[in-house]
Amino acid sequence: MSRYGYTLMTEQSGPRELVRYAAGAEKAGFDFAVMSDHYFPWLATQGHAPYAWSTLGAVSQVTSRIDLMTYVTCPIMRYHPAVVAQKAATVQLLSDGRFTLGIGAGENLNEHVVGRGWPPVNTRHEMLGEAIDIITRLLGGDDVTYRGRHFNVDSARLWDRPDGGVPIATAVSGEQSIRLFAPKSDAMIAVEPTAELAETWDAVSGRTADRKIGQLPICWDRDRDKAIARAHDQFRWFAGGWKVNAELPGPAGFAGATQFVRPEDVADNIPCGPDTDAIVEAVSAFADAGFTDVAVVQIGDESQLDFLSYAESELLPALRG
Rank of each mutant, 00 (worst) to 15 (best):
A239S: 12
S173M: 14
W242K: 02
P263N: 13
L94R: 04
E130N: 08
I189N: 04
D293S: 09
V296R: 02
E247F: 00
D154L: 14
T73V: 15
L8T: 05
P41I: 01
D225P: 04
D306K: 14
L248G: 00
S95K: 10
E302K: 09
P41N: 05
D268I: 04
F40R: 03
G241K: 10
R179K: 14
E130R: 05
S185F: 00
I178T: 08
A190C: 12
I76W: 01
Q86M: 14
I299M: 04
D223V: 11
R16M: 10
D301P: 00
I299K: 00
G250H: 14
S303F: 11
E302N: 10
I168G: 05
V266G: 00
E302C: 01
V34M: 13
A289K: 08
D268F: 07
G174S: 14
R236M: 03
Q12D: 09
A285N: 08
D233C: 01
G290F: 09
R116S: 12
H80Y: 10
A209Q: 12
Q92I: 03
T194M: 12
E126Y: 04
P183M: 10
E17W: 01
V91L: 12
S13N: 15
D288K: 13
V172M: 13
D202S: 15
A285G: 08
S185E: 06
K243R: 13
S13C: 15
Q176D: 10
S173E: 08
S54N: 15
D133M: 07
T55M: 06
F181T: 04
D133Q: 12
R211H: 13
F286I: 06
R157M: 10
A44V: 06
H150K: 08
G253Y: 01
L316V: 12
C219L: 06
D223S: 08
N245A: 13
F30H: 05
G300W: 01
A285P: 00
L128E: 04
C74A: 15
